[in-house]
């Protein structure tokens, strides 16, 4: 991943939280979501224009529903956009995404505190 790619992304996304050097993140998951999006862009799954439009839609929906839009929720909208984009591009349906989310929840539940959380096949419910 080149810094030029990141520069292009920050130019295409004017509302991205940033400081003078570039993007900033409040929590690690925000950086993970950003990194996944950058990788998918790099693979040509979408253009930044397409991404920016989808993210704007997501933010509009949230604002209509009363989101205060103080900047603290930016990456929540980003994550919603990413999930929908992944479904729309046929990579994985929302149902599949939920299955994996629930499996990770199961993995966390059975992992003692202090140990690394690893996803195993048995974390998924048996298929019907």
């Amino acid at each position: 991943m080149t810094s030029a790619a990141i520069d292009r992304a920050t130019r295409a996304l004017p509302d991205l939280p940033r400081d003078e050097d570039g993007p900033v993140f409040r929590e690690p998951w925000e950086a993970q979501a950003f990194a996944m999006t950058l990788s998918l862009y790099d693979r040509g799954l979408f253009s930044w224009n397409e991404w920016a439009a989808a993210l704007a839609d997501e933010i509009n929906i949230a604002q209509a529903a009363g989101d205060p839009d103080t900047g603290t929720t930016y990456y929540r909208h980003w994550l919603n956009t990413l999930e929908k984009m992944i479904a729309r591009k046929g990579v994985a349906t929302i149902e599949t995404q939920h299955r994996y989310r629930d499996a990770w929840d199961h993995a966390a539940d059975r992992t003692p505190h202090g140990a690394p959380i690893v996803l195993r096949p048995e974390d998924f419910p048996p298929s019907a």
Partner: peptide, 16 residues
């Protein structure tokens, strides 16, 4: 046991 937030779960799901 370990605890992951709803958001962390969703991010891990996508990453996997």
């Amino acid at each position: 046991h370990s605890e992951l937030s709803e958001t962390e779960l969703r991010v891990r799901a996508l990453e996997t």
